[in-house]
Design a protein around this nucleic acid. Structure first.
Length: 553
RNA sequence: GUCUCCGUAGCUCAAUUGGAUAGAGCAACUGCCUUCUAAGCAGUAGACUGCGUGUUCAACUCACGCCGGGGACGCCA
């Protein structure tokens, strides 16, 4: 957390400085890594912000500030320069970075763990695909994002629960049951038409075949039960091979039908009653309406249909209420962008129920466009036209697939060109990063043939790591925790794929320029420690993405 | 029509949330393996950041308006 340390030190200085100018403002200034052409480790824009406030020349302010900085932070700042319109550029002493490297080596895979010291209970809900068909690539993206965010939050110290919300009630279940039943009858020789409103996918046919093979009488078969059971098995298998494990599977039928006792009021009953008594809901045309337009929604929504059945929306509201009641202080939902119109509705409802709407954090990911033979494919579960996650997993493997999904910010839509993914699988960026670990490992193994190496962290002379490549690499390692915090702030794991690719690039450069195993024992020992540090960070980083680190490639 | 997201190199995407000369990978071209893994490194080429106006010391980033693409607007889930 070198950057954070600099921010803290600067804050103190700025506060005193502005008091001397009788300004009250804590200036939301930045400390960033400057562009390559600038010979500094960090740069701050604080002088320009102050200058604007009191209408003075930013360079003069920068000069005054830097005098104070240099006399207060001499233990870690080596040099200050004022450049451009008034940037304060800081060169940090090498030993500061070496100290951070030592911390990495001491803490190993616990490095960066719980730096936020926040044990807040968080529930993150993702995938939640309807059990009417196998997972497609869109679900895969949501799965990769959700799982990676939970890993990041866990590493930061949060108490995270991963949950899958299972929509196992409603119309779609009826259609599913009928679809399987129709296929079953066709296979049994009945000449019936297969409605275009049924699920067209081949998996429906396969389920029907299985049922035939089991030889049960048609009257004994509960088609809905059999279909959901089998599809759920497919989904769970796919997730398992995608290295995703949920802590909890939450069934919508619990909310709608209760937990078994039919006479008992269900959660959705209670939620709707509450809204009714508070005047947030009203009856009209035989249906129960939510007055969501009084909040941030653009119109009112039906909670209970005139048929007496609850809408999906009603059970979803009760479900979110249930999450709060289970004691979660922070709710994260990973939704496909097609749900965006839903946010205003659910948030306005949470306010009516007296829950904090800020506690609900919804991350939308743009849908994946699949391209095959240069043509974008239309996706529709019902038509059976979709690329399954399974297909992509089989083609490119779990690691490449996850890394690929996580290279983009959730909010940017991207094209998944299947032909490229298949053909270029070996040149996927994930291998570039994994290769770092394989190369490091090979050297470490080789080093065990020598008895003169200094293995103790405290006895190694890190000052010997003084080439440009080494300093660059150590500096990049020291940025790890900042990326961790950034990923939390933006709720996006893609910063890590970028960070790791850059780290790999710096490592490979180092590898080309610096021979590690040489006759110089002190230098060899220091470089081996640097390699160990790289391996630790690559391992933690890839772990946060759910990608493995093979020792040999 | 209303809302929303996106538009950056030939392609797929970044840009530390307003910072300095906009970066990677793939594709193309040129070099580098009898020493720790060439799934690598070095180099060349490739960008009017869709268009326009504005805000300011500073705009890919913010505001407004166009153009183009995705998505959402059910008593479906």
């Amino acid at each position: 957390m070198i950057k954070q340390h600099i921010i803290d030190s600067l804050s103190n200085i700025v506060t005193k400085y502005s008091q001397s100018k009788s300004i009250i403002d804590n200036f939301n200034f930045s400390v960033e890594v400057p562009p390559k052409n600038i010979n500094a480790d960090f740069a701050s824009n604080v002088a320009m912000l102050i200058a604007k406030k009191i209408n003075m020349n930013p360079k003069i302010i920068a000069q005054e500030l830097s005098n104070i900085i240099i006399s207060n932070t001499s233990e870690f700042i080596e040099k200050i320069e004022i450049m451009g319109p008034g940037f304060i550029n800081l060169k940090v002493k090498n030993e500061v970075f070496y100290r951070e490297l030592k911390t990495i080596l001491r803490k190993k895979n616990k490095y960066g763990k719980s730096i936020k010291n926040n044990k807040c209970k968080v529930i993150i809900e993702f995938v939640s695909a309807n059990p009417t068909g196998p997972l497609h690539v869109g679900h895969g993206r949501g799965a990769a994002i959700g799982d990676s965010i939970s890993r990041i939050l866990k590493h930061l110290g949060y108490d995270v629960t991963k949950e899958y919300y299972l929509n196992d009630v409603g119309n779609q279940m009826l259609i599913l049951a009928k679809s399987v039943e129709a296929r079953y009858k066709q296979l049994s020789g009945e000449k019936i038409e297969f409605s275009h409103s049924y699920y067209q996918g081949e998996y429906i046919l396969n389920i029907a075949k299985c049922l035939i093979d089991e030889g049960k009488n048609i009257n004994e078969i509960n088609f809905k039960y059999e279909a959901v059971k089998r599809i759920l098995k497919m989904i769970k298998d796919d997730l398992k091979d995608f290295a995703i494990k949920f802590d909890n599977w939450f069934s919508e039928s619990n909310i709608v039908n209760g937990y078994g006792n039919r006479n008992y009021k269900t959660e959705v009953d209670k939620t709707c009653e509450y809204l009714l008594t508070k005047g947030y809901a009203y009856e009209k045309d035989g249906a129960l309406w939510l007055a969501s337009s009084k909040f941030s929604d653009d119109k009112d929504r039906v909670l209970r249909r005139s048929s007496g059945e609850y809408t999906y929306f009603a059970s979803d509201v009760a479900y979110h209420k249930n999450k709060f009641e289970r004691g979660f202080l922070k709710l994260i939902n990973i939704w496909g962008a097609d749900h965006h119109g839903y946010i205003a509705r659910i948030k306005s409802c949470l306010r009516m129920l007296n829950f904090s709407e800020e506690a609900l954090n919804i991350i939308l990911y743009q849908l994946v466009v699949i391209k095959k033979a240069g043509q974008p494919l239309a996706m529709s579960t019902r038509m059976g036209e979709f690329i399954t996650l399974r297909e992509v997993l089989d083609e490119v493997g779990k690691d490449a697939c996850r890394f690929f999904f996580l290279m983009r910010a959730p909010n940017s839509q991207f094209e998944f060109d299947l032909d490229i993914a298949k053909k270029k699988s070996v040149e996927n960026p994930v291998f570039y990063v994994q290769y770092v670990n394989a190369r490091c490992n090979s050297i470490i193994r080789e080093s065990y043939n020598r008895s003169d190496i200094i293995r103790d962290v405290e006895s190694v002379n890190f000052d010997l790591l003084n080439t440009e490549e080494e300093r660059d690499l150590v500096k990049h390692l020291a940025m790890f925790c900042d990326i961790l915090c950034l990923s939390e702030k933006t709720m996006s794991p893609h910063h890590f794929t970028i960070y790791l690719t850059e780290l790999a690039n710096k490592y490979h450069k180092f590898y080309e320029h610096c021979r590690i195993l040489t006759a110089d024992v002190s230098l060899t020992s220091a470089r081996l420690k640097l390699i160990e540090g790289v391996m630790i960070i690559v391992k933690i980083g890839l772990d946060l993405l759910g990608v493995s680190t093979p020792n040999e490639m």
